[in-house]
Computed example of a mutant assay.
Amino acid sequence: MITSNIKNESIGEILVQAGKLTPDEVAKVSEEQNNSGMRFGDCAIKLGLLTKVDLDRVLSEQFEFSYFEKTSDKFDKRVLAALEPEHPYSEKIRLLRVQLTLRWLNENTSIAIFGDDTGIGSSLNCANLAISFAQFGKKTLLVDANMRKPSQHNFFKLPNSVGLSQLLAGRTDVNAIQNLSHLKNLSILTSGALPPNPVELLGRSTMKNLVEQLESSYDVVIYDCPSVKEHSDGFILTSLIKGVVITSKKNLSKVSNFKQIVEKVDLSGGKVIGAVINDF
């Protein structure tokens, strides 16, 4: 990851710090810039000294928008919001972020996200959406509430020995939350060890108290929930979190199933605030 601590540095100085240009190359680009009237970055690309990808990544740091080289070992390669923010999928995630901000997060903090079936990419959406909110400057927490088939620790390459399950069982506290030093504003609470009784754990008063505590500490809290096709965990959480986003799969999900899920969310006291149709 490229970093710049001084906001008023010139783009040339930042590129030298990042190891993308030498001082002599900066002088050469500046001379071309004076002759052509082009912007510094465009001149460097024209002279073959810099690629557009390099320029975009350095500019992102200048404007405090964190993302990483595609070869970064900090994330699973599918976490495109961090690795490829220019990708069409990343843009769709940003659009989802905008809609949720306007429709829900202007007055609320927590969102529960689950799929209408297993293996349709709901957890991946959660990971990318959490990154997008963090990039937007929101203090964001991603909670892996899928204590059956958790995946957030894999997406972010984090240890998962302690997490939500131990917290709800009273064996740890909020210190189990992992703050990402390499991605400002984002923290992760992994699932922890897989318990034999996830429904009972989520139904405890400890979970209600945790939701309230986290809402007072973060701007945005995203709960990655297991599919409601096979398990009732998600409906327990919707009674506490209220705001729900349902993930469906193109050419797989059925309208009748979706309607049934919406009805169950309503009965649990939650509200469907959005739906995402994955086409990957």
Rank of each mutant, 00 (worst) to 15 (best):
L183Y: 10
F133Q: 09
T118K: 02
D116A: 08
I277P: 01
L59D: 09
C43Y: 06
A145Y: 14
A134E: 13
I188N: 03
V199T: 01
E31Y: 06
H231P: 02
A176P: 10
I131P: 13
S30C: 05
Q33V: 13
I111D: 04
R78A: 14
V98A: 10
N160R: 11
C225V: 13
A18R: 04
V26T: 00
M1Y: 02
A176H: 07
G243D: 15
I2C: 06
S10V: 09
S216G: 04
Q152L: 11
Q178F: 12
K28S: 03
G119N: 14
K229I: 03
S122H: 10
N185C: 09
R94C: 09
T3P: 05
L168D: 07
A127Y: 09
P198H: 10
R39H: 08
R204W: 06
K264C: 06
F136T: 04
S253Y: 01
S181R: 12
N278S: 10
G19E: 11
V211A: 03
G192Q: 07
V29N: 00
L124N: 07
K28N: 12
V262Y: 04
F235H: 08
F114G: 08
S248G: 03
V199C: 00
D279F: 06
K229T: 08
N197P: 12
D173A: 06
T206L: 00
L183M: 15
N185E: 15
F40D: 11
K77Q: 14
I113Y: 02
A27L: 03
L210W: 15
I113D: 07
P195D: 10
V98L: 09
V276A: 08
E263H: 01
V29I: 14
K149D: 06
V29R: 10
S227F: 01
D279T: 03
L96R: 04
E215Q: 00
S268Y: 04
A18C: 10
P23N: 05
F65V: 08
D42R: 02
M207H: 11
E86R: 01
I246E: 14
P88G: 06
V262I: 03
S4P: 14
I111M: 08
L100Q: 07
A145T: 15
A275N: 10
E107F: 10
R94S: 13
V220Q: 15
S36G: 15
L183T: 15
T190W: 11
E32H: 05
V199K: 06
Q99H: 10
I113W: 14
S151H: 04
E230D: 12
E263W: 00
V255T: 12
